[in-house]
Simulated scan of single mutants.
Amino acid sequence: MANLIASPSGPLELLTALPSSPDNAIPPVLFLHGAYCSASCYKAFLPFFASCGIATYALSLRGHGASWKPSWFKLMFLTTLDRFPDDVECTIAHLKERRGKVPVLVGHSFGGGILQYLLCSKAIHAPGLVLIAAALLTGGGKYIIGKESKRRMVTRGPGVYDPSWKLEQVRNVFFSPECLEEVVQVWLRESKLQYESARAGLSVLWPFETAEGVLGALDGLPETGRMVLCLSGKRDLLVTTEMVGVNADAYRAADNGESVIMEAAIGTSGRHLMLDVAREECAQVIMS
Rank of each mutant, 00 (worst) to 15 (best):
A2H: 01
L4W: 12
S7A: 09
S9N: 13
G10N: 04
L14N: 05
L15S: 00
A17P: 07
P19H: 04
S20Y: 07
S21H: 13
P22S: 11
P22W: 06
P27V: 03
V29S: 02
F31Q: 02
F31C: 05
L32F: 01
H33Y: 00
G34Y: 09
G34D: 06
A35R: 08
A35M: 09
C37M: 15
C37S: 15
S40R: 11
P47I: 12
F49G: 01
C52N: 11
G53H: 08
Y57T: 00
A58C: 03
A58P: 00
L59C: 05
S71F: 02
F73C: 14
K74H: 12
L75E: 04
L75V: 06
T79I: 08
D82G: 07
D87H: 09
V88W: 05
C90L: 08
I92A: 03
A93F: 10
L95W: 11
K96R: 15
E97G: 11
R98F: 08
G100V: 03
K101N: 07
K101A: 13
V102M: 03
V104L: 13
L105A: 00
G107A: 06
H108Q: 11
S109M: 07
G111P: 08
G113V: 00
L115R: 02
C120P: 07
S121L: 04
A123E: 14
P127A: 00
G128F: 01
A134M: 06
A135L: 04
L136A: 10
T138H: 11
K142W: 14
E148K: 13
S149T: 15
S149Q: 09
M153W: 14
V154I: 15
V160H: 10
N172I: 08
N172C: 13
V173L: 11
V173P: 09
S176Q: 10
S176V: 08
S176H: 06
E182S: 13
V183E: 03
Q185A: 09
V186W: 04
L188M: 15
L188V: 06
K192V: 14
Q194S: 14
Y195F: 13
A200L: 00
G201H: 01
L202M: 15
L205K: 12
T210Q: 08
E212L: 09
G220W: 05
P222L: 01
R226T: 10
M227P: 05
M227I: 15
M227C: 15
V228F: 07
V228D: 01
L229R: 12
S232L: 02
G233T: 02
K234T: 11
R235H: 14
D236S: 00
D236K: 05
V239K: 04
V239E: 10
G245I: 05
D249G: 03
A250F: 01
A253M: 14
A254F: 08
N256K: 15
N256E: 09
V260C: 14
M262N: 12
M262D: 06
M262Y: 07
A264K: 13
A265G: 06
I266P: 03
G267P: 01
T268Y: 01
S269K: 04
L275Y: 04
L275N: 00
D276M: 00
V277E: 09
A278H: 06
A278D: 15
C282M: 13
C282Y: 04
M287Q: 13
